[in-house]
């Protein structure tokens, strides 16, 4: 709010406006510049006014986390959960371990925190490793010739559901080379 304190701010008093001309130019400046109206309070154009706790944006706009690029405005929680195999529990776990609050954004992380997250993620079985494990499990069932393996291969429900209608999920997902 200190920003608009000088000339051209919203602080007008009747003494300063002596002529119509000066009044007009003043209005022009007000409309063009950031407003700081003391009567209505708060900076009118500045979004970061009021009592909200604002964290300054970092200089880098893109952060590299575990081989992927993320814009600084992304929530850390969402970024973590974007990895296959990391859900709400794991992301909560990782963030608590490195003292990252729940509304933290990627831009607010320090280098050390990013390295810590990367280190933590590298120890987890996520992404392609996890997908591979899933496929191996299905393949094993298939190789053994089990009913479950066969049902996977046929793209049909595995766990005894009826197949008269509504087997869209099974058709979509169940196959030996399952996507994940």
């Amino acid at each position: 709010m200190e920003k608009g304190r000088g000339k051209g701010s919203g602080r007008l008093s009747s003494q300063t406006i002596s002529t119509v001309n000066s009044c007009f130019t003043r209005i022009q400046t007000i409309l063009n510049n950031t407003l700081n109206c003391r009567h209505h309070g708060g900076t009118l154009r500045n979004r970061a006014c009021g009592n909200s706790v604002q964290e300054p944006p970092s200089l880098t706009s893109i952060q590299l986390i575990f081989g992927n690029n993320y814009h600084e405005s992304f929530l850390v929680k969402k970024v973590l959960q974007s990895f296959y195999g990391v859900g709400p529990m794991f992301s909560r776990n990782i963030m608590a371990r490195f003292s990252i609050h729940e509304t933290a954004r990627v831009g607010s992380l320090g280098d050390k925190q990013i390295n810590n997250i990367a280190g933590e993620l590298s120890q987890l079985k996520i992404e392609n490793d996890l997908r591979r494990e899933l496929r191996q499990n299905i393949q094993r069932l298939r190789d053994m010739g089990t009913y479950r393996g066969r049902r996977h291969a046929m793209g049909l429900p595995v766990r005894g559901q009826r197949t008269r209608s509504q087997i869209n999920t099974a058709r979509k997902l169940n196959r030996v080379e399952r996507r994940g």
Partner: peptide, 18 residues
């Protein structure tokens, strides 16, 4: 509304009524 605009309006303090 742009980012933060709604919150700024919600938190706006008006101390005068002309």
């Amino acid at each position: 509304p742009q980012q933060g605009e709604r919150k700024a309006m919600r938190k706006r303090i008006v101390l005068s009524n002309t």
